Measured scan of single mutants.
Amino acid sequence: KITVTFNGEEKARRYYKKMQKHNLKVEIRVENNQWVVHVE
């Protein structure tokens, strides 16, 4: 499981979509004013 933190929504969403293309289970959320993407 990987957790990647971004300081911008745009970058986070781009990464999220990229990971989805690989058929990975991805989850995006905001934690402590940071955009966090969890990849299983």
Rank of each mutant, 00 (worst) to 15 (best):
K1D: 07
K1V: 12
K1Q: 09
K1Y: 14
K1I: 12
K1R: 13
K1W: 15
K1M: 12
I2V: 10
I2L: 12
I2G: 04
I2E: 04
I2P: 02
I2K: 08
I2N: 05
I2T: 08
T3S: 09
T3C: 14
T3K: 09
T3M: 08
T3F: 07
T3I: 12
T3E: 06
T3V: 11
T3P: 02
T3A: 07
V4Y: 09
V4G: 02
V4W: 05
V4N: 03
V4T: 04
V4L: 10
V4F: 09
V4D: 01
V4S: 03
V4Q: 05
V4A: 06
V4R: 11
V4K: 10
V4M: 11
T5S: 08
T5D: 02
T5L: 10
T5P: 04
T5Q: 06
T5N: 05
T5R: 14
F6C: 07
F6S: 01
F6N: 01
F6T: 01
F6D: 01
F6V: 01
F6Q: 01
N7G: 07
N7D: 15
N7W: 10
N7Y: 10
N7I: 08
N7M: 10
N7P: 08
N7A: 11
N7C: 14
N7T: 12
G8Y: 12
G8R: 14
G8T: 15
G8I: 14
G8A: 15
G8L: 14
G8N: 15
G8Q: 15
G8S: 15
G8V: 15
E9Q: 06
E9V: 08
E9P: 08
E9M: 12
E9A: 08
E9S: 04
E9L: 11
E9W: 13
E9Y: 14
E9H: 06
E9T: 02
E9F: 14
E9K: 09
E10P: 05
E10Y: 10
E10S: 10
E10F: 10
E10N: 09
E10A: 14
E10T: 09
E10K: 13
E10H: 09
E10G: 09
E10L: 11
E10I: 09
K11C: 15
K11I: 11
K11A: 15
K11Y: 13
K11M: 15
K11H: 14
K11E: 15
K11Q: 15
K11L: 14
K11F: 12
K11G: 14
A12G: 02
A12V: 03
A12S: 02
A12Y: 07
A12N: 02
A12M: 03
R13T: 06
R13V: 08
R13A: 03
R13S: 03
R13W: 13
R13N: 05
R13Q: 07
R13P: 03
R14I: 11
R14C: 13
R14P: 01
R14V: 08
R14L: 12
R14K: 11
R14A: 14
R14H: 07
R14E: 15
R14S: 09
R14N: 10
R14W: 12
Y15H: 02
Y15M: 03
Y15C: 05
Y15R: 02
Y15D: 00
Y15K: 02
Y16H: 03
Y16F: 12
Y16C: 14
Y16G: 04
Y16L: 10
Y16M: 14
Y16P: 01
Y16D: 00
Y16V: 09
Y16T: 03
Y16N: 01
K17M: 12
K17A: 12
K17T: 10
K17F: 09
K17I: 12
K17H: 11
K17S: 08
K17V: 10
K17N: 12
K17E: 14
K18P: 01
K18Q: 12
K18S: 09
K18M: 14
K18W: 15
K18T: 09
K18C: 15
K18A: 14
K18F: 14
M19I: 04
M19K: 03
M19L: 08
M19Y: 04
M19N: 03
M19P: 00
M19E: 02
M19A: 06
Q20T: 06
Q20G: 04
Q20S: 08
Q20F: 06
Q20N: 05
Q20I: 14
Q20W: 05
Q20P: 02
K21P: 02
K21Q: 13
K21T: 08
K21N: 09
K21G: 11
K21L: 12
K21H: 09
H22P: 04
H22K: 14
H22S: 09
H22Y: 13
H22A: 13
H22W: 10
H22M: 15
H22I: 10
H22R: 14
H22T: 08
H22G: 06
H22V: 06
N23P: 03
N23G: 15
N23V: 04
L24W: 09
L24H: 09
L24R: 08
L24Y: 14
L24C: 13
L24P: 04
L24S: 05
L24M: 10
L24N: 05
K25V: 09
K25G: 05
K25M: 08
K25D: 05
K25E: 06
K25C: 11
K25I: 11
V26S: 03
V26G: 02
V26Q: 01
V26F: 02
V26R: 00
V26H: 00
V26L: 05
V26M: 03
V26Y: 00
V26T: 04
V26D: 00
V26K: 00
E27V: 10
E27Q: 08
E27P: 00
E27S: 13
E27L: 07
E27C: 11
E27W: 09
E27H: 07
E27D: 07
I28Q: 00
I28R: 00
I28Y: 02
I28M: 08
I28N: 00
I28D: 00
I28E: 00
I28W: 02
I28S: 00
I28C: 07
R29M: 11
R29L: 11
R29N: 07
R29I: 10
R29C: 12
R29G: 08
R29H: 13
V30H: 14
V30F: 15
V30W: 12
V30T: 06
V30A: 08
V30P: 05
E31V: 12
E31Q: 08
E31F: 07
E31N: 06
E31I: 13
E31S: 07
E31A: 06
N32L: 05
N32T: 03
N32E: 06
N32F: 06
N32S: 05
N32W: 05
N32A: 07
N32D: 08
N32K: 06
N32R: 06
N32V: 05
N33M: 07
N33Q: 08
N33G: 15
N33I: 03
N33V: 03
N33A: 07
N33T: 05
N33F: 07
N33P: 01
N33W: 04
N33Y: 05
N33S: 07
N33H: 08
Q34I: 13
Q34G: 05
Q34V: 13
Q34F: 11
Q34Y: 10
Q34N: 07
Q34D: 03
Q34L: 14
Q34P: 00
Q34S: 07
W35T: 01
W35A: 01
W35D: 00
W35P: 00
W35R: 00
W35E: 00
W35M: 02
W35C: 02
W35I: 03
W35Y: 04
W35K: 00
V36R: 03
V36E: 04
V36P: 00
V36G: 01
V36I: 12
V36D: 01
V36N: 02
V36K: 04
V36A: 04
V36S: 04
V37T: 00
V37D: 00
V37A: 01
V37R: 00
V37G: 01
V37K: 00
V37F: 02
V37N: 00
H38K: 08
H38A: 10
H38Y: 15
H38E: 15
H38V: 15
H38Q: 13
H38W: 08
H38N: 09
H38I: 15
H38G: 04
V39W: 06
V39H: 04
V39N: 01
V39I: 12
V39Q: 02
V39G: 01
V39E: 00
V39P: 00
V39C: 07
V39S: 03
V39T: 03
E40H: 11
E40P: 05
E40W: 15
E40K: 07
E40M: 13
E40Q: 11
E40L: 13
E40I: 13
E40S: 13
E40A: 08
E40R: 07
